[in-house]
Amino acid sequence: MSIQRIAAGPRMAKAVVHGDTVYLAGQVAGEAAGKSVAEQTADILGIIDGLLAEAGTDKSKLLMVNIWLADMSTFAEMNAVWDKWVVAGQTPGRATVEAKLAAPQFTVEIAAIAAK
């Protein structure tokens, strides 16, 4: 079975497709780095939409999502954006935890697994 790597760099690929499963690496904000949790979440979800499309799938086929927040007190702020984005009736499994992220300008990181 072939493996397709999307946006592969020297350390990691942003997405890997193996068979009918798409694995997204942890995504952090691009344009919204350093901005509010809501803005970072919206930015990341847009990135995820693009990677899923490039892999031949979409958010309606998400299987599992892991979300890391730098501060769990922002859980409701992140969820306000998430709830508008996720497909009703087709929500994935999900875990959300508080963790120190790679750089201080990042307050949200999201990784996902989806079917094709």
Score class of each variant (00 low, 15 high):
M1L: 10
I3A: 08
I3Y: 03
Q4L: 11
Q4V: 11
Q4W: 01
Q4R: 11
R5F: 12
R5Q: 12
R5Y: 12
A8N: 11
P10N: 12
M12K: 10
A13H: 08
K14F: 10
K14R: 14
K14I: 00
A15I: 09
A15K: 03
A15V: 09
V16Y: 01
V17C: 10
H18I: 13
G19H: 10
G19M: 07
G19S: 07
D20N: 15
V22F: 07
V22D: 09
Y23T: 11
L24W: 04
L24T: 08
A25I: 07
G26T: 10
Q27S: 10
G30V: 02
G30T: 09
A33T: 08
A33D: 04
G34S: 08
K35V: 00
K35P: 02
S36N: 09
V37L: 02
V37D: 01
E39T: 07
E39D: 15
E39G: 02
E39A: 15
A42H: 08
D43V: 07
I44F: 00
L45V: 05
L45M: 07
G46R: 00
G46S: 01
I48K: 00
I48L: 10
I48Q: 01
L51E: 08
L52D: 05
L52F: 04
L52N: 03
A53M: 00
A55T: 08
G56A: 06
G56E: 07
G56T: 05
T57V: 06
T57W: 04
T57I: 08
D58I: 02
K59S: 09
K59E: 09
K59Y: 04
S60H: 06
S60F: 02
L62S: 02
N66A: 13
I67M: 11
I67Y: 06
I67C: 14
W68Y: 13
A70M: 10
D71R: 11
M72I: 15
M72E: 13
M72W: 04
M72F: 14
S73R: 15
S73E: 14
F75V: 06
A76W: 00
A76G: 02
E77H: 01
E77M: 01
E77K: 05
M78Q: 12
M78A: 13
M78V: 02
M78N: 06
M78F: 14
N79P: 00
A80V: 03
V81M: 00
V81G: 01
V81R: 03
W82I: 01
W82Q: 03
W82L: 04
D83E: 13
D83K: 11
K84N: 07
V86Y: 00
V87W: 01
A88Y: 09
G89Q: 10
T91L: 09
P92S: 10
P92E: 05
G93Y: 12
G93C: 07
G93K: 14
R94P: 02
R94A: 12
R94S: 10
A95F: 11
T96Q: 12
V97T: 13
V97A: 12
E98G: 15
K100A: 15
K100G: 12
K100T: 15
K100E: 15
L101Q: 05
A102L: 14
A102Q: 13
P104L: 08
P104K: 13
P104I: 07
Q105R: 12
T107W: 05
T107I: 08
T107Y: 03
V108T: 08
V108E: 03
E109L: 12
I110C: 06
I110T: 06
A111P: 05
A111M: 08
A111Q: 08
I113H: 00
A115F: 13
K116R: 15
